[in-house]
Design a protein around this nucleic acid. Structure first.
Length: 580
RNA sequence: GGGCGCAUAGCUCAGCCGGUAGAGCAACUGGCUUUUAACCAGUAGGUCCCAGGUUCGAUCCCUGGUGCGCUCACCA
């Protein structure tokens, strides 16, 4: 599990530009909260979600029919839920909570009111609460918060419970003397409930910043019991399937996703500042191109045509370079019908960018600058730890040629077919049979396999592996000095491929020839046909162009120090659960 | 797809050699005005993942299945 982080860090993540200075909502009297007496239920007086449309809806008891249905379905009678009522709920709904729900309704309280309330972010309160030594300016003033009530500690005439909103967590103190009319009703409140609290900002005897409640409003009853308070959700499957619980019940989970979101936001700003235009290209592709991978197949009924879910946006983005957009990028969800591992999810997010009048050296510079910028902004430093090892994201990164790495690790030349075949035998590497594949194709498939086994796992990095062989780089332009290699690099970190870039091949005739070689290689993952439409696009002339792809899930893993790609995906792909 | 492992109360986990099940937290009842994994006393809560098999008897042993994790293979 991830370690706990302070609210200060979360705050910094939430507003990377503003640092630890969150915007505090107006501190006066928030609208929508009855300030007279000990209001038990606030009324709907334009509470934060005002809109002209809502104003024109004539007031009446809403959804009476639905209420009655709900009353039978969910509102178990106060004496206890019968087996029939129980069986009609999901098994997560707790009988005690169903009873409390019914008791609330019996008292005339709406356990699921239609309106939220205007409130201020808890992080703002904390920032303005000061320390014990130097009390903050807000102590003693009124405050209104809204969020999820966590573990309740009841002392008979006193009760404490933290409330968590999107920004932070603060303790709420409930005193009988402050909440005379409401006190008995506290028993209908449970850990996990959505509440709004209006009260006074103060401290306890131990010095903990606390909102002393004057008014309590239930915003939504929680029928499912929250997970164990100390461990949170531990079962990995449950964490992924019920991420909506994991996000607030497990320490550090939300911070990872806030970091991921901020990372993508920073990438957009970084590229926009350099004149790149964000575009969206199709997800449904007639030919699965731009990478070698097994695609998902789907079908369009009206066109009566099969489509592939995109394995890469590359060929469409380069069409836009032909179209003159010159600098484009896409944050692209890609789909590959392959295995699942700690580094692979069937759908994953890539950044791809293309820049006219640039080549792979510019892409290298972009990569270094972007990664260093992200580390500095998100973590405040370029040194980081990933999977227990230290890394340094300060540019420039190391550069190593593909053929040199191959020679060092295997003691033979990449181009020497006999030596490569012998080496493959040594390592026990075999390839699935590809009837009709040429000796050339076989050699490169073996060489790639050997490289992946003997070099990649050792590349701690960050390191740019450059000059990939031409036969395994069908979309890259050849090195002008040696056509056997290309102007291509991949960035490795922690034995993991993070980025892939090249000087884009823009000669349509050579591109067509390379596509044809790919088809002839019988590689089961290569496209089954030549993308002639793309070749035609190149015939209209694509300027010299550099292209770069960065795996954003993997980058998020590195920056958030998460071991599994599933820990940086809100809802990783899981086998569907049987309904029976 | 292969190998290894896991599945017991709402949650986290025990359960010896095969004899129908236990703790902590959560819940419920009572007590407590400064706790923060609150505490104290009590109560209730189970299709031991599913289906077969062996056995007088299976949470436990065997077979098959389901789900998940780790790992290998391919990809990024």
């Amino acid at each position: 599990m991830t370690c706990a982080r302070s609210a200060g860090i979360l705050l910094a993540l939430l507003s990377p530009r503003e640092g630890a200075r969150p915007r505090v909502a107006r501190a006066g009297s928030p609208r929508g909260i009855s300030s007279a007496g000990r209001a038990l239920q606030w009324h709907c007086r334009g509470q934060g979600f005002d809109s002209p449309i809502l104003h024109h809806v004539p007031f009446r008891a809403p959804f009476r029919g639905a209420e009655e249905r709900d009353g039978r379905l969910r509102g178990a009678p106060p004496t206890g839920a019968g087996p029939n009522e129980r069986s009609r709920m999901t098994e997560l709904a707790h009988p005690d909570r169903l009873q409390k729900l019914a008791a609330l309704r019996a008292k005339g309280r709406d356990p699921f009111p239609a309106r939220g309330v205007e409130h201020e972010p808890i992080a703002g309160l904390i920032a303005a609460g000061g320390t014990l030594e130097a009390p903050g300016p807000r102590l003693g003033t009124k405050a209104c918060i809204a969020g999820r009530l966590l573990t309740v500690r009841d002392f008979g005439k006193l009760m404490f419970a933290p409330v968590l909103d999107r920004t932070a967590k603060i303790q709420v103190g409930f005193q009988k003397t402050r909440l005379e009319g409401w006190w008995e009703e506290r028993k209908l409140l449970d850990g996990g409930d959505q509440v709004a609290i209006r009260g006074e900002l103060g401290r306890t005897q131990k010095g903990e910043l606390t909102v002393w409640a004057d008014e309590v409003l239930l915003l939504a009853k929680t029928l499912a019991a929250p997970p164990e308070k100390w461990h949170g959700l531990v079962d990995v499957e449950q964490r992924y399937r019920r991420r909506y619980v994991d996000l607030w019940a497990s320490e550090g989970v939300r911070e990872v996703f806030v970091l991921r979101s901020n990372m993508i936001s920073l990438i957009r700003r970084f590229l926009e500042a350099r004149g790149f235009l964000e575009v969206e290209t199709p997800t449904l592709h007639p030919i699965a191109g731009g990478a070698t991978a097994k695609p998902f197949v789907t079908h369009h009924n009206a066109l009566d045509s099969d489509f592939y879910l995109r394995i890469a946006p590359e060929l469409y983005l380069k069409r836009l370079i032909v179209g003159g957009l010159e600098r484009v990028f896409e944050v692209s969800r890609n789909f590959r019908n392959e295995g699942i591992s700690t580094r692979h999810n069937p759908e994953f997010t890539m950044l791809e960018l293309y820049q006219a009048q640039a080549d792979f050296r510019h892409m290298m510079a972009h990569t270094e600058e972007l990664l260093e910028h992200l580390a500095r902004t998100l973590l405040g430093r370029t040194a980081l730890e990933f999977r227990g090892k230290p890394y340094e994201l300060k540019a420039p990164f190391q550069r190593r040629r593909y053929d040199e790495l191959f020679r060092e690790a295997n003691g033979c030349e990449l181009l020497d077919r006999t030596a490569v075949a012998r080496r493959a035998q040594e390592l026990g590497i075999t390839l699935p049979p590809r009837p009709g594949a040429s000796a050339e194709a076989h050699h490169w498939a073996l060489a790639t396999e050997i490289f992946d086994h003997t070099v990649e796992p050792l590349l701690e990095g960050p390191v740019f592996v450059t000059h990939f062989p031409t036969p395994i780089s069908p979309l890259a332009k050849c090195d002008p000095a040696d056509a056997r290699y290309t102007e291509r690099f991949e960035l490795f970190l922690g034995g993991m491929e993070l980025a892939n870039a090249f000087s884009e091949l823009n000669d349509p005739q050579e591109q067509q020839r390379r596509f044809e070689e790919q088809v002839a290689s019988k590689d089961p993952e290569a496209p089954g046909e030549v993308d002639l439409d793309y070749v035609q696009a190149l015939e209209y002339g694509m300027p010299p162009t550099g292209g770069l792809g960065i795996g954003l899930d993997r980058l998020a893993m590195v920056l958030a120090n998460q071991n599994s790609i599933r820990d940086v995906l809100l809802f990783p792909t899981l086998r569907p659960q049987h309904s029976s």
